[in-house]
Design a protein around this nucleic acid. Sequence first.
DNA 1: CAACTGTACTAATACTAATAGGACAGTCGG
DNA 2: CCGACTGTCCTATTAGTATTAGTACAGTTG
Lengths: 141, 141
Amino acid sequence: MEFRISPASGLPIYQQLVEQVRSGVARGKLAADEKLPSVRELSQSLVINPNTVARAYTELERDGVLYTRPGMGVFVAAKSAPLTKKVRRERLLPLVDQLLVEAVEMGCSLAELSKLISERSTVFEWNGTSEPSNASGGKRK
Amino acid sequence: MEFRISPASGLPIYQQLVEQVRSGVARGKLAADEKLPSVRELSQSLVINPNTVARAYTELERDGVLYTRPGMGVFVAAKSAPLTKKVRRERLLPLVDQLLVEAVEMGCSLAELSKLISERSTVFEWNGTSEPSNASGGKRK
DNA sequence: CAACTGTACTAATACTAATAGGACAGTCGG
DNA sequence: CCGACTGTCCTATTAGTATTAGTACAGTTG
């Protein structure tokens, strides 16, 4: 998987990397136990400091997205046991509300928003009890 | 409307204020042409610097959420003309994707996410061509 | 005119992002 | 065992931002 950073993003570089890894895992572009580029390798190809890459990896490992095999590299962690429904709700609510605020603010209808969500949802790797109506989001490798 | 700031939030104070105003407007807790507390008044009640409040107000005015009547105060702006569907899509996509990534990451199903969204959507003031199924989100004042 | 409104400006402090360079411990292939 | 790789840790430095502080100005109200 390719990584890109854009100075115009406004977000810190290490955070851009974190988001790209998270997104890649959720989209199935990064498979479990797949090896990520080494800290030094990625820092050279992106022309940034190794410490910046290391910070991103460290944060992702803390959150259970990656794991480290000392001396070998960092790898994509297998999907951990799903959290409680209550915990999921608590963590998703702020994001949901933020999305709804923005949608309402710009005069979007609820139907339009729902359509947008179901559109984008087809690309992700859902593992719950219900799948997206469209199954076009299969693993590519 | 009451404003609160939490030092533990991690977000800058001015940004917390911006979010609360946006949220209040989208939820109908702040009506059009309603007057907001003055810069000095709010800064005293929250025990923060007037400049911090002024920064939040300035940013909100730049985005068309508030307007200023010189010498009188800042007020909630009326809903502006809705943007193009294309523009709405472009601005909402990043948030939608971020939400989907988080949901997938914690093992949430699409059905569970949809339910959560429709649950929260009842509190907002939609003005599109389609309303939420539940009408409990009426204006209170 | 007096008291309020938002705005503008400068200065100082504190924290964070990012870079730089160096050092350490674990693991592999020879 | 040895060299080359892996991630991690440490200190120092630079740059940018958030926040506070105090002052000043222009417009509006009564």
